[in-house]
């Protein structure tokens, strides 16, 4: 019936029974302040989708960081606490210990988790708190204007190392998830990305596993998302994804670092 196919217009396809994908309901209609193409939006969406699929909207407490994601509480319709800079794992520890029935996760950037919050992160993981840590690693301080972070790559140019990061002066890029995997309290450590549709689907599975570990009291799970910062890197979003594949992935290879069954 070739004619039928030709007659079928876009209007005929757009019907509720044909719906295959839409923005999760937990994600508000509030416009997000992130720059165009920012990985934060994709990860917010994944967190919302996983909570929705687990039916945990009323039983989730997110811990927002300081950094670009500081306003995460405006975008996802769940309970939130806003932590002081870097202290999200400490706050999550308190919430999870007081309310073990809640799904508790922190959402942190690399400046929050790997710089000022290193102590809190390492000790929360070492204690094996049953929290999930979502770690957005884009190798730069995005919110404050693109300064060097501990995770900045060797030779990478930022506002505070305009000639590129010199390891003699600034040290080496901090691979903090590699450190966390050595701690006995951690259960699941993985490094994912959200640059392609396939990668996004894999990252969603990783977040789901981390959240399930939190609910089953199995210890700390860390999902590192190697991300882009198109504004900080001074590239357009599509170029930023290409740059990340070429430069970030060799330093931060994707895959599971630790998965204790």
């Amino acid at each position: 019936m070739k004619n039928e196919e030709v007659r079928m217009t876009t209007k005929d396809i757009i019907k509720p029974e044909n719906l295959v994908y839409q923005k999760p309901e937990i994600m508000n209609d509030v416009p997000m302040h992130y720059c165009p193409g920012c990985s934060h939006g994709v990860v917010h969406k994944l967190v919302a989708e996983v909570i929705e699929e687990m039916g945990m909207q009323d039983k989730t407490v997110g811990i927002a960081p300081v950094g670009c994601a500081v306003f995460a509480y405006n975008y996802l319709d769940i309970d939130w606490e806003e932590a002081a800079h870097g202290r999200a794992p400490a706050l999550a520890t308190a919430v999870k210990r007081l309310r073990p029935d809640r799904l508790v996760f922190t959402y942190q950037g690399d400046g929050d988790l790997a710089a000022i919050g290193t102590a809190e992160t390492v000790h929360a993981c070492n204690r094996g708190e049953s929290i999930a840590i979502i770690f957005i690693n884009n190798g730069i301080y995005g919110m404050t204007g693109g300064q060097m972070a501990p995770t900045t790559l060797e030779g990478m140019k930022t506002a505070t190392c305009p000639y590129g990061r010199d390891v003699k002066l600034n040290g080496y890029p901090l691979k903090i998830t590699n450190i966390l995997k050595e701690l006995e309290g951690t259960r699941y450590i993985t490094r994912q990305s959200v640059h392609t549709a396939a990668a996004v689907r894999k990252a969603k599975k990783a977040i789901r596993k981390a959240f399930e570990n939190s609910m089953e009291d199995k210890g700390t799970s860390v999902v590192e998302i190697v991300s882009t910062c198109a504004s900080g890197w001074k590239l357009d979003p599509v170029q930023a994804n290409e740059w990340m594949e070429k430069n970030m992935f060799p330093a931060y290879p994707l895959g599971d670092l630790k998965n204790v069954e």
Binding site: K2, E4, D12, Y21, Q22, P31, G41
Partner: peptide
């Protein structure tokens, strides 16, 4: 209707519909 566009959209702007057509 593969939904790849909607999956990578950082702002959740895209809604996808899909149907089978007998050709």
């Amino acid at each position: 209707g593969c939904a790849n566009c909607a999956v990578v959209c950082p702002d959740g702007c895209i809604t996808v519909y899909r149907t089978k057509v007998n050709g």
